[in-house]
Simulated scan of single mutants.
Amino acid sequence: MGTHLRPATEAEARALASAIRLRILRLCLDQALTNKEIAGRLGTNPATTLHHVRKLVGTGFLAAQPSRPGPRGSTEIPYRATGKSWEMDVRESGVTGANAAILDAFLEEVRLVDVEEGEFTRLGLRLTAEGHAELLRRLREVLDDFRMRQPAPDGEAYSLFLSLHRDVTRDT
């Protein structure tokens, strides 16, 4: 969404073509978490989670933070999301699956939410190519504005999923 996004490399696009990796990025957005903490929150095997964490670190989507003491004298490394994924377009990479991964991550996360607490809306539109481009540009401006704001220390965490797609049920 938007023309100021840089194209993702093939390695970056492959890293983002995984619902579990997208969920890891979301978990580490506001706070640094260790591999064990990530695995616990996702209900996944720590070894499998570590594979995904390493892929995200290797492509610059997660950054290791200073190590800290862990249980029984161990050392733990927490990881924090860099926000890099917001600034790139994976569509031109030639890697398939990135959009499916975003949808899968959303569906996995929204299943955990009380649907009565969410805000949902749908809108049907008929747009020219220019109208489509304008809508995407204006949405990106609003989303960029909110993304750049300092997080409110007493604020609640929210997620936003936006899908603009052809409505094949209304095509004539």
Rank of each mutant, 00 (worst) to 15 (best):
G2W: 01
T3S: 09
H4N: 06
H4R: 07
R6C: 03
R6S: 10
T9S: 15
A11T: 03
A11M: 01
A15S: 14
A17D: 05
A19I: 13
I20Y: 04
R21A: 10
R23P: 02
I24K: 11
L25H: 05
L27S: 12
L27P: 10
L29P: 01
L29S: 10
D30A: 14
D30F: 12
A32T: 08
A32I: 06
A32D: 03
A39F: 00
A39K: 02
G40N: 08
G40T: 10
T44M: 14
T44G: 03
N45G: 03
N45A: 10
N45F: 01
N45K: 09
N45E: 08
P46S: 10
T49F: 07
L50Y: 03
H51L: 15
H51M: 15
H52K: 12
L56P: 04
V57L: 06
V57H: 00
G58Q: 02
G60W: 07
F61C: 04
F61Q: 02
A63Q: 10
A64C: 06
A64S: 08
A64R: 02
P66Q: 00
P66W: 00
P69Q: 07
G70R: 02
P71T: 06
G73I: 04
S74K: 04
S74E: 02
S74M: 02
T75A: 01
T75H: 00
E76I: 00
I77R: 00
I77K: 00
Y79H: 13
A81D: 15
G83A: 11
G83I: 12
G83Y: 04
K84M: 09
K84G: 02
W86F: 15
E87S: 14
M88G: 01
D89N: 14
V90P: 11
S93V: 10
S93A: 15
G94W: 05
V95A: 09
A98H: 07
N99Y: 06
A100L: 13
I102E: 04
L103A: 14
D104P: 09
D104T: 15
A105N: 11
L107T: 07
L107S: 08
E108R: 13
E109F: 08
E109N: 11
V115M: 08
E116K: 12
E116S: 13
G118Q: 13
G118W: 01
G124Q: 08
R126E: 13
L127V: 14
A129S: 13
G131I: 12
G131S: 08
H132C: 12
A133I: 03
E134W: 10
E134P: 02
L135P: 05
L136N: 02
L136K: 09
L136Q: 09
R137W: 05
R138S: 04
L139N: 05
L139Q: 04
R140E: 11
V142G: 03
L143K: 03
D144R: 05
D144Q: 05
D144M: 03
R147V: 06
R147D: 05
Q150R: 14
Q150N: 09
P151Q: 07
P151R: 14
D154K: 15
A157L: 13
Y158H: 15
S159K: 13
F161E: 06
F161S: 13
S163L: 14
L164A: 06
L164M: 14
H165Y: 03
H165F: 11
D167G: 02
V168I: 07
T169V: 12
T169M: 08
R170A: 14
T172G: 04
T172M: 02
T172Y: 03
T172H: 08
